[in-house]
Simulated scan of single mutants.
Amino acid sequence: MRRRSRAAYQRAAVALLAAALAAVTLAGCADSDSVHADRTQGPTLPPTTSAAPTPAPTSTLRTGTPSNPLRYAALGDSYSAGMGGGNETGPCRRSPHSFPQQLAQSKSIVLSRFPACAGATTADVLQHQIKTLDPQIDLVTITIGGNDLNVSVLPSACAKGESATCKAAVAASVALLQKLPDKLSKTYKAIAKAAPHARILVADYPLFYDLPTIDENTLGSPELSAAVAVDAAVASLDATISDAVAKQRQAGTDIHFVDVSFKGHGVNAKKPWFVLNGFDAYHPTVNGYTRYADTLSALTR
């Protein structure tokens, strides 16, 4: 479940980013290669919602046993494929250290379907991955939405601080948020239809940076402003995913939003859980995927 401190951080980060975009820290965004038609204002972020209780649907998850394990399907993008975990194979960059493979180490779970693929968007899930499901699937996990917003480019675009490239990348990701709720809704509905007896676990994306206390006295540096912008964009993505999951729960689907935190292990930490260099940069390390597996496992039984 989403911790209050994380939810409060998301709301604060989004509010700070909105203020920064409209005022000083990212005010120049509209003067660069902005993706917005209205060049007088910064990008508009969707409102985040508090973690209000939603009706709990009837659980469809049976108890897995070594003799009759849960049939598990792992859908989604590179975070589900395990890119960055090491020993990746094929164009989808699937790793034996991915969180689906780690979950399947349990004797009560067998990974029956693993179509998750690096670079996948909601459209890819609908067109290619849904077809791997069937009514016998008991458990589905998914990470999706990040590539729809191109959030993977944000850390590298903002690595040198508050630059024109950083401003444009953040603005573009925020602009794409408006279309994401409908895409997520269609994706979750399609999963529930294809695997009607499955529990669906939707994991979010961990924030990239470990930030100090954010107030009016700490927003001055370009580096911090860029970090706030990146984390706030990811927080907005996570909030959008959470809201979409809540709507499906209200409709009676056995679907759960799972908040995965890398707090203390961001890209700027002493022991980051993100790959920092190379082709797999800004994807979780083995330790990061272990955090995913540990967090998700509580809802698999």
Score class of each variant (00 low, 15 high):
D33I: 15
A18G: 06
S59C: 08
T25P: 08
T60H: 06
G28C: 02
G28W: 04
R39P: 01
T40K: 09
S59K: 04
P46D: 02
A22T: 12
A30Y: 09
A23N: 06
T60Y: 04
G64V: 06
A19G: 08
S59M: 01
A22R: 07
S59Q: 08
A56Y: 00
T44S: 15
A37Y: 07
L21A: 02
T58I: 00
H36Y: 09
T44Y: 11
A30D: 05
A23F: 04
T25H: 04
A23R: 02
C29A: 02
D33V: 15
G42R: 02
L61N: 07
L45W: 07
R62I: 10
T58G: 13
P53R: 01
T25L: 05
T63D: 13
A23S: 09
T49A: 08
A52Q: 07
L45K: 12
A27M: 07
S34V: 00
T48I: 11
D31K: 13
P55A: 12
A37C: 15
L17R: 03
G28A: 01
S59H: 11
L45G: 12
A51V: 14
T25Y: 03
D38S: 11
A18H: 07
S32D: 12
T48C: 12
G28D: 02
L61I: 06
P43S: 11
A37P: 06
A56Q: 14
P46T: 03
T54D: 02
